[in-house]
Amino acid sequence: MIKFDEKEFRDKMKRNFEERIWFINRWCEYMKENSNKDWSSQQARLINAQIKE
């Protein structure tokens, strides 16, 4: 059995979300600094791995 702390879990969720928002901001900056071909080919690799032709 594990000891589960509800408050600790909520804090962790909150931190995960804040970190994702940070990443989105950073990713958008990256997109703006680079060509459409650059960011979209990275995105395509991610999407095409999940969605086959």
Binding site: K37, I47, I51
Partner: peptide, 13 residues
């Protein structure tokens, strides 16, 4: 207008 975007499988669908 957004040219140069790599069209992925979701876009194609």
């Amino acid at each position: 207008t957004l040219n140069g975007k790599v069209v992925n499988n979701l876009d194609r669908f």
